[in-house]
Write a protein that binds this DNA or RNA. Structure first.
Ligand code: FES
Ligand code: FES
Lengths: 151, 151
DNA sequence: CAAATCGTAACAAGACAAGTAACATGATAC
DNA sequence: GTATCATGTTACTTGTCTTGTTACGATTTG
């Protein structure tokens, strides 16, 4: 569990949802993600709140994709899951009045801000249908590959 | 303890070591960092191995800066402490054979690789004396500020 | 009503930096 | 040469965050 994989997982789910027309239950998605349905509901809640997917209770219910993949960027998904912390490193807060610590944290913070801006810009520039197209390309390149779990 | 602050802490220490000529004990540094001496020794071990500082046992011992700040970049320090993980997010590894998961992880990984490259490039472009100069500038701008802990 | 399905709260597990305690080792002072 | 100072190292605990799990309630369909 070394890294936060929510963004990666949600992208995976959304693209699969686009392939299958019918709705997917949390149980099915959980098997896809090799986890359990509560984790799925927890993570997908943000996507529902932002209007990217819809969930329906009861018999025959489940999750459905509401908007086309071409309308959703990686950044949208990142925001929808609550903009989790991107970096594992960060400033020290040991002597907040020390001007050296301040200067260090500013230098470090500047570099991190730039890297974060670049990353978010990159996420914003890619829509999910682009990744789906990459997937299709792989599929035609290696048609023999079994690309599926149980779903 | 939300973030890994080793890099920030070590930069802080190295700059202070340059200001004070005499050697600093792990105890003194620990007070500076609001922590305890074992953490200091643990974190500074890498800096010693890379030859940026030297440590001496016994009465009158402690840590001394071996190389001038202008010879040390932020990247050098980052490497010396063992290149800890930069990102808190990462790829999912739930269905490694799924071509969708692969495509997602490639897209995400590309963006992260670029951001990481930018960050490391930035760290490489800044030497510690640059931060020390920023500190001096602050000091002359606000000479009344008490900028010191107990050290 | 019964079964399916989501929503949510509460709690356990795993990972990892940070904090702490204990003890060995080496160097200096007297 | 002994006491003291200081680092080196190991082992263990703590804090925090994602992930996993269990339990239960609410809603929809058959
Ligand atoms: S999880 Fe991607 S194929 Fe089933
Ligand atoms: S810690 Fe920076 S002034 Fe003492």
């Amino acid at each position: 569990m070394r890294n936060d994989s929510r963004l990666s997982r949600m992208l995976h789910v959304l693209i699969h949802m686009d392939k299958h027309q019918h709705s997917a239950t949390s149980d099915m998605i959980a098997k896809m993600l090799n986890t359990n349905p509560v984790v799925v509901r927890r993570t997908m809640a943000g996507l529902r709140e932002q209007g990217y997917v819809r969930s329906e209770k009861g018999h025959g219910g489940g999750w459905t994709l509401v908007r086309p993949l071409s309308d959703i960027t990686l950044l949208d998904v990142y925001r929808a899951i609550g903009e989790p912390h991107l970096f594992a490193i960060g400033p020290a807060d040991d002597q907040p009045q020390c001007l050296v610590e301040q200067a260090v944290n500013i230098a470090l913070g500047d570099a991190m801000k730039e890297a974060q801006a670049l990353l978010l810009r990159r996420l914003d520039s890619v829509t999910l249908d682009k990744i789906a197209a990459d997937f299709e390309a792989k599929l035609t390149a290696h048609p023999a590959t079994s690309y599926s779990c149980a779903s």
